[in-house]
């Protein structure tokens, strides 16, 4: 099971450097977003309590990027379904869970890569931690857990649609608003009433708040443990659903 999972994770990762469009999505695109947000919106957005907008922005941007990290899983699974690879894997004496486990594990690696790219970009334009090493590492661990939870959501999306193109569309339409109606890019206090309530209960906000307090200091409140609970709940909901979909996809 473990070696099957690693074999399949390796196979999912090889895809990245060989697909210019995916490579761009995981490297250049986040850098571009950071620069656009920092310099186009930066001057207009007040972030009371944080040194400047770049400090405020980087944790939010990393959370957003990581929420999308599972896209590779959705695209990959949708492709495997349409191209008959799932049938091949099933016909092999391979642990059945390893197809999903391999994909989501590969996402952890790409999420780590995105995180490094965004942090380096952040440092270049002036982002600074206000935290000790354990706090920084706790933030990294929390992000990976969060990314892993979202990978299972994407796994369900990938197996619910009929083509990789549809996976792309559905994934974008579902996840994009969730990351935007949150505290990722602007303080929720600046939002109109209805939207603000949504942003307050959004797990993305909880996650961003926890990360900001870990990396930048400030009030932790209960955002840290709430984030962990959110991730666990998402995994508990979507992982079994993904496994079920995977089983049913055979038409058994």
């Amino acid at each position: 099971m473990i070696s099957d999972t690693l074999t399949l994770a390796e196979r999912a990762l090889v895809r990245l450097p060989r697909n210019p469009d995916m490579l761009l999505a995981f490297t250049v695109q986040p850098i571009m977003f950071v620069l656009l947000f920092a310099f186009v919106f930066g001057g207009a957005i007040e972030t009371p309590g944080y040194g400047d907008y770049i400090d405020f922005l980087i944790p939010g941007m990393i959370v957003q990027q990581i929420a999308f990290g599972g896209f590779a899983t959705a695209l990959g699974l949708a492709e495997d379904m349409t191209k008959g690879l799932i049938d091949r894997f099933r016909s092999l004496p391979t642990a059945r869970a390893s197809v999903l486990a391999g994909r989501t594990l590969a996402d952890v690696a790409t999420n780590l890569l995105s995180m490094v790219i965004l942090l380096v970009t952040g440092f270049v334009i002036g982002f600074r931690f206000d935290a000790n090493v354990p706090e920084i590492l706790a933030g990294v661990a929390l992000l990976l857990l969060f990314g892993y939870a979202f990978s299972w959501i994407f796994a369900v999306i990938g197996m619910s649609v009929s083509s990789p193109e549809a996976a792309n569309g559905v994934g974008f339409i579902l996840i994009f608003p969730i990351t935007f109606i949150s505290s990722a890019f602007v303080p929720v206090e600046s939002m109109p009433a209805g939207l603000r309530q949504v942003a307050d209960v959004n797990p993305v906000s909880t996650m961003v708040d926890a990360l900001r307090s870990l990396w930048l200091g400030g009030e932790m409140g209960n955002s840290l443990w709430l984030s962990v609970v959110w991730c666990m709940v998402l995994i508990a909901l979507f992982a079994p659903l993904a496994v079920r979909k995977y089983r049913l996809s055979a038409g058994a």
Binding site: R11, V14, K83, L85, D87, R88, L92
Partner: peptide
Amino acid sequence: RSRIGLAGQYAAVDENLTGIENLTMVGRL
């Protein structure tokens, strides 16, 4: 499953892998 081989209706190869990587992956599985 370890005694049968299947070539399905659509050529089930991973397009992103090379020929040798495809076959090595299957061998490892």
